[in-house]
Amino acid sequence: MRLRPVLAAALGSAALLCGAVAPATAASASADSVTVDPAGRLADDGTVTLSGTYTCTDATGPVFVSSSVSQESPNTRHGVGGTRAVCDGAEHHWENTGKVTSEKLKPGAAHVEATIMELRPQGVMPLPTFHAVQQQDVTLDKA
């Protein structure tokens, strides 16, 4: 009968661990927004530059504007840097640059997703809280 308490403790620990790594999805005030400029830049070496604007408020932890780009397959996204955000309610410009294997992207139509994400203190470790997300079709121009 000693196995039952051990199994219960293990299951409880697993549930606690899963709860600790699940992202927090509560968004803050509706004033939070992120935009994506209609054109990005793609250099010959695979360096991608994306940009836009953001507005956010009510942050208690560090906040970032992250971006990703896809072409042809929406299931394959390439992360393109991250910018530290200032959540003071004012509109700010963001620009992210990252290098993708040059064969993966080419000039032309692409799809970008930009996200404002906060690492909000929650107990022992900070959890991601998403303030705003924007998806937009863009054109990648030769840099």
Rank of each mutant, 00 (worst) to 15 (best):
M1N: 12
M1Y: 14
R2F: 14
R4C: 10
V6M: 12
A10T: 10
G12A: 15
A14P: 08
A15T: 12
A15P: 10
L16Y: 12
L16T: 10
V21T: 14
A24G: 15
A27E: 13
A27I: 06
S28W: 13
A29E: 08
S30C: 08
A31W: 11
A31T: 08
D32N: 14
V34M: 13
T35E: 09
T35P: 06
P38D: 00
R41I: 02
D44N: 01
D44I: 02
D45M: 04
V48T: 00
T49W: 02
T49D: 02
T49N: 05
L50I: 04
L50M: 07
T53E: 14
T53Y: 12
C56M: 08
C56P: 07
T57Q: 04
D58G: 05
A59I: 12
A59C: 08
T60S: 15
T60F: 13
F64Q: 11
V65N: 05
V65D: 06
V69P: 02
V69L: 04
S70K: 02
T76I: 14
H78R: 11
V80P: 03
G81A: 06
T83L: 08
T83R: 14
V86L: 14
C87V: 13
D88V: 12
A90I: 07
H92I: 05
N96K: 08
K99L: 10
S102A: 09
S102I: 04
E103H: 09
K104D: 00
K104M: 10
L105A: 02
L105R: 05
K106E: 03
G108I: 10
E113W: 04
I116T: 00
I116D: 00
E118A: 01
R120Q: 11
Q122F: 12
P126H: 00
P128D: 06
A132S: 05
V133P: 00
V138P: 04
D141W: 10
